[in-house]
């Protein structure tokens, strides 16, 4: 027990530091520490579930343990880690490669913590150096595969906001391939760890850098276009603009009051989108953001009411006018929607 208490922190600390670096590197503070801890706990639960699933499936498996670890367990473990990511991305709880990546790494870290503790406890006689190397490599691998899955999936969802579950397939297959490849190399744990350490953090770092730049560009462009939209609506010239003419083409399909609701929705969505961008700008500048004010809360409630009144078909028709991509829908979550 004492050996475990000494060895566990040595084996687990590096990956926790890597996760801390990711959270710290998120200049827009998109994922709060509390959320990271919650996601780690969810990852730990996924590890428990995968232990049970692997226990029963291995009993039915005809091959040896190495073959099972290479060809079967990666599918199960990656699927269990992905389950929460599927929810987070589809519910727009995460909307960018940065926050999706951090969520993925946190889930993977929680998963690896439990797996490593099990490994340390079940093989107390293994040399500490091997345990540390294996523990670190496994943790980076678990965090890395979930991160890669999250980043690929959230990017595909941004392109197709109304897409189905099939959008998770490419990321899932890449995660399974990396995991299986790592398990292939596990007969030589130093090589497996070194390969993982050299490749995955580099990919994650490059994606984060790119995502930060992309978010900044989007922030700039979208803020300006929302300001222009609001200027058009407030000045009463919206109906003469291209977007206004598009709205008028819906006259034949919707009632007058529905069109009025759509115009209100466009204005409200524009105002709330600007508020969300204000939050992002404050975070980026390191300013403390004020608590959500009553006016914004009322607007969020009104937005929901308008969406209900307009209905599903109306929302589909008006969405192109709102320029509502995945990020547009996600950003309102920053306001607590």
């Amino acid at each position: 027990m004492t050996t475990l208490l000494i060895r566990a922190p040595i084996a687990l600390a590096p990956v926790l530091l890597f996760l801390a670096a990711l959270v710290h590197g998120d200049s827009y503070k998109l994922v709060r520490l509390q959320t990271v801890l919650g996601l780690m706990a969810a990852g730990a639960v996924a590890a428990g579930a995968s232990y049970v699933a692997n226990f029963y499936l291995y009993a039915q498996f005809a091959g040896n343990f190495d073959a099972y670890a290479r060809f079967v367990s990666p599918w199960i473990e990656e699927a269990l880690k992905a389950a929460l990511l599927v929810y987070l991305i589809r519910a727009r709880r995460v909307g960018l490669p940065v926050d999706a990546g951090i969520a993925g790494f946190a889930i993977g870290t929680g998963f690896a913590l439990i797996e490593n503790l099990y490994y340390l406890a079940s093989r107390p006689d293994t040399a500490i150096a091997i345990q540390v190397i294996r523990g670190f490599g496994t943790a980076i691998m678990h965090g890395g595969t979930a991160t890669v899955l999250a980043i690929i999936s959230v990017t595909l969802y941004e392109r197709r906001p109304n897409g189905g579950l099939y959008l998770f397939l490419p990321g899932f297959l890449v995660a399974v391939a990396i995991h299986g490849g790592f398990n292939f190399l596990l007969v030589r744990p130093v090589l497996a760890t070194l390969t993982t350490l050299l490749v995955l953090p580099l990919i994650i770092y490059a994606v984060f850098q790119n995502s930060d730049r992309a978010l900044r560009d989007w922030l700039d462009q979208d803020l300006d276009s929302k300001v222009q939209l609001l200027e058009l609506i407030n000045s009463g010239t919206f109906l003469d603009s291209n977007a206004g003419r598009m709205l008028q083409t819906l006259r034949s399909r919707f009632r007058g009051e529905d069109l009025a609701d759509m115009l209100c929705l466009l204005r409200l969505h524009g105002e709330l989108a600007l508020r969300a961008k204000g939050v992002l700008l404050m975070r980026e500048s390191g300013m403390e953001e004020p608590p959500l004010d009553a006016e914004t809360r009322d607007k969020l409630a009104e937005l929901e009411q308008l969406e209900r009144a307009i209905g599903r078909t109306g929302m589909l028709a008006v969405r192109p006018l709102m320029m509502a991509t995945g990020k547009d829908i996600w950003q309102l979550r920053l306001l607590g929607r």
């Binding site: 803020l223 300001v227 407030n234 600007l274 204000g278 404050m282 403390e288 004020p290």
Partner: peptide, 15 residues
């Protein structure tokens, strides 16, 4: 007016 509105919509009038 329009510049004030941008500050207001972005919530900067609160800080």
């Amino acid at each position: 007016g329009p510049v004030f509105d941008i500050f207001h919509y972005a919530g900067f009038d609160q800080i």
